[in-house]
């Protein structure tokens, strides 16, 4: 039966080496927990780059398109009042609000996507309660690994790879 373990590493290089080493074995590296966005760990995990910018582009275009349509529909179609001798449909004047709404919806999409994809709208999760895990937001680097077989051999392997501490995650 497979078991999930959490290993604490003193610094970036240690955890990066451990990740590369573990990838050769058939243990599954679930995720790393780092106090800051470390490039080394990211390269080591070698996951697909985030597709968030694409979502943001789509959100931005919807915002801009929707804003332009709304302005045209209200000002040029429903009640086409003439002001200052300008024709009711006056694209030059619609550009600014279109741009602003494009930026607004793009930003909202970015933040909401981050919260959703990062599953951030929560107070706690499965690893939060593990003993000593608070150092993950201080100076230590934690690694979550799913053992292939029983947990024991993985525990020693992690020790050898430089883990200063290995814990089993507490389901609070």
């Amino acid at each position: 039966m497979s078991e999930r373990l959490l290993a604490e590493f003193p610094d970036e290089h240690a955890i990066a080496g451990a990740i590369r080493a573990l990838r050769e074995t058939d243990h599954r590296v679930l995720d790393a927990y780092t106090p800051f966005a470390s490039h080394e760990v990211e390269d080591a995990l070698a996951r697909r780059p985030s597709r968030l910018p694409f979502a943001v582009f789509v959100g931005g275009m919807c915002g801009a398109g929707g804003a332009y349509f709304l302005q045209w529909y209200l000002v040029a179609h429903l009640y086409p009042l003439v002001v200052g001798g300008r024709p009711p449909h006056f694209p030059v004047a619609f550009v600014i609000i279109t741009f602003e709404m494009g930026v607004l919806f793009a930003s909202l999409t970015a933040v909401i996507a981050t919260l959703v994809v990062g599953r951030l709208v929560r107070l706690t999760d499965d690893v939060q309660g593990t003993a000593g895990f608070e150092t993950a937001t201080r100076d230590r680097f934690w690694l979550a690994v799913m053992s292939h077989g029983p947990g024991e051999p993985l525990r020693e392997l992690l020790g050898k790879l430089g883990a200063s501490r290995v814990e089993t995650p507490e389901v609070a």
């Binding site: 927990y33 996951r47 929560r122 939060q128």
Partner: peptide, 12 residues
């Protein structure tokens, strides 16, 4: 918001 520095979340 329950942040714990998960690498995948850092990426996004």
């Amino acid at each position: 918001l329950g942040w714990n520095g998960k690498a995948s979340t850092w990426r996004h």
